[in-house]
Design a protein around this nucleic acid. Structure first.
Length: 431
RNA sequence: UCCAGCGUAGCUCAGUGGUAGAGCAAUCGGCUGUUAACCGAUUGGUCGCAGGUUCGAAUCCUGCCGCUGGAGCCA
């Protein structure tokens, strides 16, 4: 048996092949049936002509139900009407398991129903495309950082204390001790950078915030690079190269998926380094000029503010030099103006919000100790972090990219819950 | 947590005080190039739950539950 996958049929033109597949949808008439087949690698149409197959095969085909699993044998032929460019002239169909009453029909469904059936919803064309884009972002992330000489390091998920002391953490027990699920691997990545130079992590992160918006998940994945001997400006350059690489990789390797998602790729094609930059001071002034009277120097931006700033550009935009009070304790103050930090948020275009937060880190022992006191951090839990400033401290910078927001932006989808296979949301722990 | 909206067939919805409806799905039949195929027929109901008003409630009122959208917090 000449078995293959839908992604590989292009290598079997005019050959007869067998594909393991599920019946995605079906259209039939008296003497011809069209089987919409999917096998995970892609979608292809199988054409069953009554004249070309034994009668029992044609009758079987007519009664196939949605999501029935099959072995389909047929000849691969070119067809310009197919998005794939090929279709299958079916000669035999073997049912593996007949699916009855598949809940997700070809018509429209509500969000609650689809989320309750997320384990099946993933099979749909749009969700399949999003997962492929997500995978390409992950693949090109590894590619980029490997090419740049980074080492992947895995920080712990169970931690004894908060990394930033701000957000709500998930609490659990670690035998007789209290423990928390990681909200950032950053502090550990700083330690790793002092050992390996340039490092990046990719892992889950947990925030017990009661956030209920299209941009928030309770459990999400972050990419956190950390670079020794790199200042804030050099970090921004790396960030814009990284994001550009990811966008261009998706454009190159996910053409069918972006087409399925009806993404306006002309907007993505513009995403090339360098990215525009605006200081926090100028951003506040810009917003006031735009008529926002609900924000003053020292406030953090809300979603409408971020969107207004992003809409002024057709690339992601860095907002730099935030007031130190509204940023994390470890960010290095600007030597020219200690009221602001050497930091930047990267705001995605089209209203998708912040996708990166980064900064140069404090490398001075005394200043870091002072920050501990100001933020009332538990000295014991952070003792090891302080030691990094004691034994050969060097200038270093890092940032964190939110994977799901990046997937949402590049895919052009409305809600972040569709960017992760099984989203954890405020009121959803199943499936 | 706050603000707003919505809960009617398996799904998506209409019905706003007087006999419970449509499209899709499912089942049966028809159709040789369909693209959420189309055409005909059949099946399908604790109107979220509890209480109240009324001769009469899916419809009006109160409470609860669930969901959706937005805000705050953040990536």
């Amino acid at each position: 048996m000449n078995t293959t996958t839908i992604a590989q049929v292009k290598n079997h033109l005019e050959e007869t092949v067998t594909i393991g597949a599920w019946l995605h949808n079906k259209r039939s008439s008296g003497k011809i049936a069209f089987l919409q087949l999917r096998d995970g690698t892609g979608f292809i149409q199988g054409v069953v002509a009554k004249a070309a197959v034994p009668e029992e095969i044609f009758n079987l085909t007519k009664n196939l139900t949605q999501e029935t699993s099959l072995y389909v044998t047929g000849k691969v032929v070119e067809d310009t009407r197919s998005p794939l460019g090929f279709e299958l002239q079916v000669s035999n169909v073997e049912v593996i398991q007949e699916a009855e009453d598949y809940p997700i029909t070809p018509k429209e469904h509500g969000t609650e129903f689809l989320m309750d059936h997320r384990h099946l919803w993933l099979r749909s064309k749009k969700q399949h495309a999003i997962m492929k884009v997500r995978n390409e972002i992950i693949r090109s992330t590894y590619e980029f950082f490997n090419e740049q000489g980074f080492v992947k390091v895995d920080p712990p998920i169970l931690t004894g204390a908060s990394a930033e002391g701000t957000t709500e953490l998930f609490h659990t027990k670690y035998f007789d001790e209290d423990a928390y699920l990681s909200q950032s691997g950053q502090l550990y990545m700083e330690a790793a950078a002092m050992a390996l130079g340039r490092v990046f992590s990719f892992g889950p992160t947990f925030r017990a915030e009661k956030s209920k918006t299209r941009r928030h998940l309770i459990e999400f994945w972050m990419i956190e690079p950390e670079m020794a001997f790199m200042n804030h400006e050099q970090s921004l350059e790396l960030q814009e190269q990284y994001v550009s690489h990811v966008v261009q990789s998706v454009l190159k390797n996910c053409k069918i998926e972006l087409d399925t998602l009806e993404r306006d790729t002309s907007k993505l094609e513009k995403i090339e380094a360098p990215f525009p930059r605006i200081t926090y001071d100028d951003a506040i002034q810009f917003l006031k000029d735009q008529g926002f009277d609900d924000i003053d120097w020292g406030d953090d931006f809300g979603a409408p503010h971020e969107t207004a700033i992003a809409e002024a550009y057709d690339k992601p935009v860095f907002i730099t030099h935030f007031p130190v009070e509204i940023k994390a304790f470890y960010m290095k103050p600007d030597p020219d103006n200690p009221k602001v930090a050497l930091c930047a948020d990267l705001i995605a275009p089209e209203g998708y919000g912040e996708i990166i937060g980064g900064s140069e880190r404090i490398d001075d022992f005394e200043l870091m100790k002072q920050r501990y006191n100001e933020h009332e951090l538990d000295g014991q839990a952070y003792e090891w972090y302080l030691q990094l400033r004691k034994y050969g401290s060097v200038p270093h910078s890092g940032f964190g990219l939110g994977l799901e927001r990046t997937v949402a932006w590049i895919s052009g989808i409305e809600h972040i819950r569709e960017t992760i296979p099984f989203p954890r949301l405020l009121n959803r722990l199943y499936p």
